[in-house]
Write a protein that binds this DNA or RNA. Structure first.
Lengths: 219, 219
DNA sequence: ATATTTTTTTAGCTTAATCTAAAATATATT
DNA sequence: AATATATTTTAGATTAAGCTAAAAAAATAT
């Protein structure tokens, strides 16, 4: 059984190595967790001793297959709770992270499966990040963004592609929330922007950048 | 800010002193928490130093007003999560406690208020225990049990009065779940039992003891 | 290529929460 | 009332997770 602290380190190492796939430096881990390098070294050695990470002194740390699986299980929980907080308890996009940081450590596999079912087996969290499955695997699904649609087509908003909350806050402001239906009215070739209509409301304009970052399903 | 362990001790002392109102012995606390008397002594002294409990060596421990309020806040969270697990995630009555023991320590006042609202401000948990309000106060509401109804009347099941899970398991077996509608068919004076009908299903018999322990609202 | 700076590790200390064993106090029994 | 038993407290150790300060290694600059 992993401690809360071990889970946090695994998750942090996973996120830091996601892009580069290279070993992560002790300092990077410590910074991300707002702790000291000495503490990170200690924990990294402990994770390595448990077979969750591979580590060579002064060379940084990588997760093993086992460590990656455990980290993804935590990520799965985090993202499912985020969906719950946003969709069912009406939290804002930028408020969910902190609470999910606590909820992700609740230990009950059945709880998470029930939550997943209750939420309708979402494939992405509100930030557009994929939700790993129960085995700690990320199933990559080809995504459709609003920008590929043509005038006359209709779609439903699944999530945002970009995991920063800037976009999410902007969408919130213009009343585009998860699950709403959108109809494409016009496409403006000169700047690749769209005129759209959100469920009965008046038409609004989306820039190409925004359109490219909204993940949707066709209706 | 209270630690998880402090919260557990407060809750345990509250429960143990609920009936007698008298000081609770160190051993009783230790037993309930499956720990050792020495550990309980340590923590009790710590709670007393923080003004959450009053304690005299060898004489047992009581909660102060402040301690009681904090304990009731934890109880509130526990019971709201139980309602959530039962009503929304379809857990069984006897499965919710263990998971709620973890969820009750999540720290976010807003989360609990949102959860309360989402659940429709329930006044009792599935075991029939009252849910304290946000200020850590238990508002006692006069309750109506099925046993006071007359033939022809209809009601909805709110919860069970008895907090043991025996009754709950029994109700589960005869398909009486939270929120179902019941119609009283007959009352049998010789043993005070009832014939009832659950939402369209065939008539069943309830003993007086069971009828006295089902809290309902009249329809 | 040597010296300086930065990063990482080690060593040793701290705190919270536990434990065991021994001492102190309270309760029960003759 | 004296003694035996049970309960409670204290003392001292342990574990997990953190810290600071100093040592070791790596990276950078002259």
């Amino acid at each position: 059984m992993l401690t809360r602290s071990e889970e946090n380190y695994l998750k942090t190492i996973l996120h830091l190595s996601e892009e580069t796939q290279k070993p992560v430096s002790t300092n990077a881990v410590a910074d991300k967790l707002s702790t000291k390098a000495a503490s990170a070294t200690d924990m990294i050695q402990k994770l390595a001793a448990k077979g969750l990470a591979s580590y060579y002194k002064y060379k940084g740390v990588k997760l093993t297959t086992k460590g990656t699986r455990e980290a993804l299980r935590v990520v799965r929980k985090h993202r499912l709770w985020e969906v719950f907080l946003l969709k069912e308890l009406h939290f804002k996009w930028d408020e969910v992270h902190e609470i999910a940081e606590q909820l992700e450590h609740i230990k009950s596999p059945l709880l998470i499966e029930r939550l997943d079912e209750h939420l309708g087996f979402p494939k992405f969290d509100p930030h557009g990040d994929p939700i790993p499955n129960a085995n700690g695997e990320v199933v990559t699904i080809p995504t459709t963004t609003l920008s590929i649609l043509n005038p006359g087509e209709r779609c439903r908003v699944i999530c945002a592609k970009d995991s920063s909350s800037d976009l999410l806050t902007y969408l919130d402001k213009i009343d585009i929330s998860l699950g709403v239906e959108i109809e494409i009215m016009e496409f403006h070739a000169f700047d690749s922007s769209f005129s759209i209509r959100v469920e009965g409301a008046g038409p609004i304009t989306l820039s190409s950048k925004v359109a490219e970052n909204i993940i949707i399903e066709r209706l």
